[in-house]
Nucleic acid binder design. Structure first.
Lengths: 133, 133, 133, 133
DNA sequence: GTGGTCTAGACCACG
DNA sequence: GTGGTCTAGACCACG
C-alpha cells in the first residue's frame, strides 16, 4: 500500500493520510487483522511528523477502523467494520448534499450522478494496481 | 430563502453560507436574474462579519453563480450556469472518492449508495419548503 | 472556578484538568452557555502547554460538554448535557466494578459504599466554596 | 477462575489482570490460603509477558492480598484482608469523585447512583459463574 | 484574537 | 520498541 501526500494541497495532511488508509481498507489491500506500521515507522516512511500520524491513528481507532495495542503496535480491526446504521446514512446524506446541489446547478441529474458514483466504485474496487490511478 | 448557520459546526461559516446559496439556486428558490441582498444587508441580516459575506460573494462570482455590479448590486447570474465539463466531473469524482471508500467499509454497495443520492436529490428538488426539513 | 493541578501525580495533567472542568459543571460553577477561557489563556493561566489544554477541550467537545466556536472561543454547551442512556450506565458500572471489588475485599458492604457515595455527592453539590476542599 | 484480557483496551494489561484477581477474591472464587499459579505458569497460561505477571504479584503482595514464598509459591493471604481505614475511605472517595461529577452532569442523582452500585454488588457477589457475564 | 495544523524533541509507562 | 504525554514554537484559516 502506497501513501501519496500532496503537501501543497488545501486538504490537511492528516485528512489525506486518513482517507488513503480507509481507501486501502475499502479496496482490500488492507485486511482485518493486518498490521499497520508503527506511528514512528510510518511517519519516517512518508516524511511527516509522528504526531500527525498519531492523530490519524487515534481518529481511525475512534471510528473502529483500527485497534491500537500497547507496545505491540497497530492493526486493522480484526472484526470487520460497523455496518452503516441510520445515523451513518443521515450523515452521509448531509455530506453529499452540497455536492449534489452543486451538481444540479451544473446540469447533472440523478442518472448522471449515479453513473459518476459507479465510476468511483469501479476505480476503488477494480483490480488494484490497474485502475489505481 | 432562509439561511441557517451552525456557529458551533466544524464547517466554516463562509462554506455553510456558500453551500446554502448554491442549494437555493439548485432548488430554484433563487432564479437567474434574481437580486441578492448587498454584502452589508446580508451580513447584518444573519449576524455575521462583512468579510465573511464578501468572501462568499467573491467565490460565487468566480464560479459564475452570481454577478456583482458596483452600483446595481448582486444578482444570480442571468444566463444560467456552466454545464459540467470533464474537469468538473473529475473533480466531483475526487470529492466523492473518500465518501465512497468509507461507505464501502460500512457495507454500502453501489445500489445502496445510488438510493442515498436519490434521497438527496428528492430532498433538494422536492416541493421546496415542504420536504425542506 | 479554580484549577489545581498536581504535577507530581500519576494522573496525567490533561485528565486532571478535564475532571476539574467537569466537576465545575457538576457543581454549577460553570453554567450552560458560559464562556471558557481560550486555549492560550487557560494554558498560560495554569502554566501548562496550549496543546494540553487543546486536547482537553477537544475531548470535552467530543463528549458534548462544550462547544468550540471558530475564532470566538469556547463555551459550556448551551443545551445542557446528554441524559444518561443504557450505554452510559453500562460503562459507568464497568468503571465502578474494580472499585467495588476492592471495597468488598476490605469489608465495605453495599450500605457502607452508598454512604461513601453520598458523602461525595455532598462534597460536590454542597454549597460551593465551603465543602470545596 | 478465568482471566479475560482485552489486549486492545486502553487499560494496561497488568491493571486488568490485577483487577480480575481482586474480583476473584471478592466473589470468593479465590479464598484465603488458596494457591495461585507461579509467575511463569500464569504468564504462559494467558500468553503475556513474565514481567507483567510479576508486576501484578508484587503489587498484590504490597497491598496484602497475597503472600509470595520463595519456594512454596504464591497464595492468597491466609489471614483475610485489611479492613478499610479512614485513609482507604478517603482514597476511595477521591476515586469516585470524577465518576460522580460526570454522573451528575448526565442527570444521575444519589439514588440512581446507589442503584447502579447495588447492581454491581449483585453482579460481583451473585452466584458466581451465573450472573458473571 | 481564536482555534487548527504541523514540526521537533523529550521523557515515560508498558511489556 | 511501542504508544502516551508534554513542551516549545511556528504558520495559517477564519472572522
Amino acid at each position: 500500500m502506497f501513501i501519496k501526500l500532496d503537501m501543497a494541497s488545501d486538504k490537511p495532511i492528516y485528512i489525506q493520510l486518513k482517507e488513503q488508509i480507509i481507501e486501502g481498507i475499502a479496496r482490500e489491500e488492507l485486511h482485518p487483522g493486518d498490521d499497520l506500521p508503527s506511528v514512528r515507522a510510518l511517519a519516517s516512511d512518508i516524511g511527516i511528523n509522528l504526531h500527525t500520524v498519531n492523530k490519524v491513528y487515534q481518529q481511525l481507532k475512534q471510528e473502529d477502523y483500527i485497534q491500537i495495542h500497547r507496545s505491540r503496535g497497530v492493526m486493522i480491526h480484526p472484526n470487520g467494520f460497523r455496518k452503516a446504521d441510520e445515523t451513518y446514512r443521515t450523515n452521509l446524506k448531509e455530506a453529499l448534499r452540497p455536492l449534489i446541489a452543486e451538481a444540479i446547478c451544473h446540469g447533472i441529474n440523478e442518472k448522471d450522478f449515479s453513473e459518476l458514483t459507479l465510476d468511483v466504485y469501479q476505480k476503488i474496487l477494480g483490480k488494484a494496481g490497474e485502475t489505481n490511478e
